[in-house]
């Protein structure tokens, strides 16, 4: 694909909001239509999508999700230090995406197995047995796309994790637990090999893996394996690795929903006599439950957005370096 001719053409292309357009040359090279898994989160679906026009996270690409926790890499001396530095993958979001991938695959009657590689990303089976969907909260108008940042508030649908979805799905569609295979490699090299092997299996529709400590070489290897498969690859990485280079197509940071401005961020604090818990048993907010903010940190081919903001699109030559 040659350089983009003219600003108008570029802006027109940008109007479609295709962040993952970089996958287009690869998909054409492999001669398959590109597919995407709709996330069920309108803002993200609108912003991302395959070159074929399908909305959602593109299959055959790596999507990194930075986990919830502290970003610092301090040395843990005390128990409090350790609990400050620990992180956990956004398991409920990953489970939601895996479920979406399964639904997408079963709707095409394609094989729909899901692998969870690395004990850290194994969710408690009780959490994925239920039809617990995560929905997008009301959109935040202050951070729309033109600022170059995509920030989405997510929370479990309809009052916590109880399964009461608005559009009731047929029961045979929600067998995520039955389609899941849990794999526990002993070290990082075996983990990389396991992900690679799983990606080469045609029956797998989503690979969710612990991607901590994977460098450029590792992610590049996975990206090459993923490009030849139909699987959705979700890597959970520690929040401190947000500046690591990798071959991933998108990178998302997940933070907990900030409750009060006074204790934004992750550092817990003790404030005696808060005003929010006059009667803790009575839930003032029927939504309740946990909530997250997903922020798009980077996406291949997304320099277009930044350029648009800076209004200097001259040196943008075509698409990004490609996914595979």
């Amino acid at each position: 694909m040659g350089p983009v001719q003219g600003i108008e053409a570029l802006l027109e292309q940008l109007g479609t909001g295709s962040l993952a357009g970089s996958s287009k040359p690869d998909q054409e090279a492999f001669g398959r239509p590109s597919r995407a898994v709709p996330c069920g989160w309108p803002s993200i679906d609108r912003a991302t999508g395959s070159a074929g026009g399908e909305a959602g996270l593109v299959r055959g690409c790596i999507h990194e999700w930075l986990g919830v926790g502290s970003r610092s890499h301090g040395k843990a001396r005390t128990r409090a230090d350790r609990s400050l530095h620990e992180w956990s993958p956004p398991l409920l979001l990953l489970a939601h995406l895996a479920r979406q991938a399964v639904l997408d695959a079963t709707s095409r009657s394609a094989p729909a197995a899901v692998t969870w590689i690395g004990r850290r990303v194994w969710p408690y089976p009780g959490a994925i047995e239920q039809e617990g969907r995560v929905a997008e909260a009301q959109q935040d108008r202050r951070s729309p796309l033109p600022t170059g940042e995509l920030k989405v508030q997510l929370e479990p649908e309809a009052g916590g994790c109880e399964s009461s979805t608005s559009e009731r799905l047929p029961p045979e569609h929600s067998k995520l637990l039955e389609r899941s295979i849990f794999i526990a490699p002993k070290d990082a090299s075996l983990r990389l090999w396991s992900i690679d092997t799983a990606l080469r299996c045609p029956g797998i529709t989503a690979v969710i893996a612990d991607g901590s400590g994977l460098g450029m070489a590792g992610t590049r290897r996975l990206q090459l394996a993923a490009a030849s498969s139909e699987a959705l690859v979700l890597l959970a990485r520690p929040p401190g690795e947000d500046r690591e280079v990798s071959a991933a197509t998108t990178r998302w940071r997940v933070t907990r929903r900030e409750a009060e401005p006074a204790c934004a961020g992750n550092a817990p604090e003790v404030a005696p006599g808060g005003r929010h818990h006059s009667d803790p048993c009575r839930d003032p907010d029927p939504r309740g439950g946990p909530g997250w903010t997903a922020t798009l940190l980077r996406a291949k081919g997304a320099q277009k957005l930044r350029q648009r903001q800076a209004d200097t699109p001259r040196f943008v030559h075509g698409q990004g370096p490609g996914a595979g």
Partner: peptide
């Protein structure tokens, strides 16, 4: 198991051990 998934399970279990490739049952 699907045939391909069965083969994947075999390959993984051979290298990682059968205790490392699991499924959950309610």
């Amino acid at each position: 198991l699907d045939r391909h998934v069965g083969e994947l399970v075999d390959v993984l279990a051979t290298r990682l051990g059968t205790q490392s490739v699991l499924a959950a049952r309610a």
